[in-house]
Design a protein around this nucleic acid. Sequence first.
DNA 1: TTTATTGCAAAACCTTTGCATGTAT
DNA 2: ATACATGCAAAGGTTTTGCAATAAA
Lengths: 145, 145
Amino acid sequence: MKQKFPFEHEIRNTGLKVTEPRLKILSVFEKSKARHLSAEDIHDTLKAKSVVVGMATIYRALANFEKAGILNKSTFDDGRAIYEINEGPHHDHIVCVDCGNVEEFVDEEIEKRQKKIANQKGYSLKSHSLVLYGSCSECLGKVDK
Amino acid sequence: MKQKFPFEHEIRNTGLKVTEPRLKILSVFEKSKARHLSAEDIHDTLKAKSVVVGMATIYRALANFEKAGILNKSTFDDGRAIYEINEGPHHDHIVCVDCGNVEEFVDEEIEKRQKKIANQKGYSLKSHSLVLYGSCSECLGKVDK
DNA sequence: TTTATTGCAAAACCTTTGCATGTAT
DNA sequence: ATACATGCAAAGGTTTTGCAATAAA
């Protein structure tokens, strides 16, 4: 197969087979304006381009990519689950409860204290989830609230 | 109705009617060893005492109690949603990924930095969710891992 | 060829909702 | 009496799974 996609390496390196649906799914992350995408988002985006990939395949691919470290998954309190490409430093999210917009932030001090707390409690820390919920400046400016 | 339960006041104060199912549900929190309970946990605990309350009623009651500030809800990455009595200072959770145990912790520094981050980004912070995931000391001690 | 992947439909979950019945106020 | 709460069963939304067909290695 010709080396058309930069993601081909990454998929192959994980031991997964390089398939059309998998490449299409990753291409959505590459080309999409939004960095944080749900399974549904991916399905809809592809469908808009007349690329039909079954939801089951999308869920399976996302799970595989997460396990392989290509994607990161985050779950929000409203049940939304979003994926993003795993690149750059670790970060957490701040979500607008009005418009649903997602932004990222990094705070080393919070990271440090999390590790400290886990240690104090005798836990081997595997991961964490930190999400801030609030109204973004744009939504705060609107009268109809 | 006789003043058998301390929760009667609380329910009445919220404007909700004081009903048998609601009292039973809150009594589970009062009497249960575990502080963090799912809808299912409550259902099962009551059923074990031959108190049958429909799941729909439990879900509706928990939602009402949360809105009224009697309970707090937390959602974990694995989809579990747990409720706990809203008392004492705000706290976050650390969850054992092996046995599912839930513990609480408080860290003022993290709280402060969250507010700062939200402000910097122009958000009006409404709430946050912080969950640490790891293996607890008890599970770390087991060989079969 | 051999083994993994896909797509579909069915099932599994968890949670919510409509509606008739029952209950607190 | 009146408004609210309950229970059941049905429906929702999201994610998972079994299985035969298909494609990558």
